[in-house]
Design a protein around this nucleic acid. Structure first.
Lengths: 237, 237
DNA sequence: TCCCCGGCTGATTGGCGAATCAACCGGCCG
DNA sequence: CGGCCGGTTGATTCGCCAATCAGCCGGGGA
């Protein structure tokens, strides 16, 4: 069983450990100096490996970023999807769940989120690297679908454009995180993060859900008593 | 049309015309291929001038972007400031006014807005080019100040963090514009733009203003009958 | 013991593109 | 008319950095 496993990236072998190290270093360096502002040599030094080894694991610099993006993003998207497509919860819970996922990702790995936001989501349309922002837009479309369904179920104001709702939610979350990433928010402790998350979700919901004071308002104080209803969204799968 | 000369730059001489041409070409090219994805040669070709002339008017490539950023941004900021600091209007009107300014900027010059959003606002922290995102953060801070003042006047829920409100508003506007910039919104006509603007402002206000159904809600249907209560904020043009 | 092999090394190379610079207009003044 | 001068040109230079590659090391199998 412990036979030499084939070169497929099946299990986390010793070799993959190096790969991981390089990936982490890349995130670190990208977060610090930006993709264009750093050399491969920086990544190698940060990882404590030889320059050439980076090219042993990654075809080129671009693939390095691509991989970083794919890993972080796919994790986020799958978690978000499981929330957005959960049939058993209300729109409000979904929105809170999505905010949860995003802020939890930031809490767990701020650097990675910074890279994702700054280098991936907003990468200028270079024409070639479409895949990246396509992933981002895909997430928004997914949310838009969620809102559209909620709308026909009467959980969303009829006069709103679902796509715009999705943009609004993502924009609010993204900029909220940016406020932390960029140091705009002086207090960056976990409880500040939690407060920000709640405020964003509640504000968004008040603005978007039919019937002025929603249960968002009601549950505001007693939310922990009704905790069982909230899936809490496991992060690292 | 009234956009001729913006501010200082008093004497619009013949020489400045060339400079302008290059600047416009830069915006065009930056919007199409991104700052890093284009060469100075591209800008020169687009402008129909010799390669070297670009360096006659701008110290280097970075200063070119810097100038583009400064021009577009200062225009936006000054318009926004005049709205945010207007003592004679309510918070709601200010918020609508800010949305107005942003969307009007997009309507007038989508390319420039695209560059501003993609290349300037979210430029990765390169350490050196701090000024750019500093300008952006400055705008958010200004809005935060506006919200803080509104809060002590009772125009904003007491339980909200002004800075976060500012982030939320900017995030919503920015992502809304991004939806257009990136082609997420299939319909990009002026009336779609108008609808998006209204939806963003109203949603934000519902979420943030004390007393569930605000005048936003009330005026929603009867806004044109509600006489001159709403000054309609004389944006540019 | 020696050889093989695959992870690993880092000096070298090649190309790209920013920035320079010497020459070139064409108008204007003396 | 001739010389000057500022805007203009684009081939050339120069530095940087991604990507290569020839070779090293250490383990394990024969």
């Amino acid at each position: 069983m412990s036979q030499r496993q084939s070169k497929s990236e099946a299990a986390g072998s010793r070799e993959n450990e190096r790969r991981r190290t390089i990936l982490r270093a890349a995130i670190e360096v990208f977060a610090r100096k930006g993709y264009h502002g750093c050399r491969i040599a920086d990544v190698a030094r940060e990882a404590g490996v030889a320059y050439g080894l980076v090219y042993h694991y990654f075809k080129n610099k671009d693939e390095l970023l691509e991989t970083v993006a794919e890993m972080g993003w796919s994790g986020f998207v799958s978690r978000m999807r499981s929330v957005a497509e959960d049939e058993g919860i209300t729109l409000e819970q979904k929105v809170r769940g999505i905010a949860d996922v995003a802020f939890e990702a930031y809490r767990v790995d701020p650097r990675a989120v910074k890279v994702l936001i700054l280098e991936v989501a907003r990468s200028p349309a270079g024409g070639h690297v479409v895949s990246r922002q396509q992933a981002f837009l895909g997430a928004i479309r997914m949310a838009a679908g969620m809102f559209a369904r909620a709308q026909s179920a009467g959980e969303l104001r009829a006069d709103l454009d679902p796509m715009l709702c999705a943009s609004l939610l993502f924009g609010a979350i993204e900029m909220g995180l940016t406020a932390f990433v960029s140091g705009l928010m002086e207090d960056r402790g976990p409880e500040a993060l939690e407060r920000a998350k709640v405020q964003i979700a509640e504000s968004f919901l008040r603005g978007v859900v039919p019937g002025a004071a929603t249960s968002a308002e009601v549950s505001w104080k007693q939310e922990r008593s009704s905790s069982g209803t909230r899936p809490k969204v496991g992060k690292r799968s």
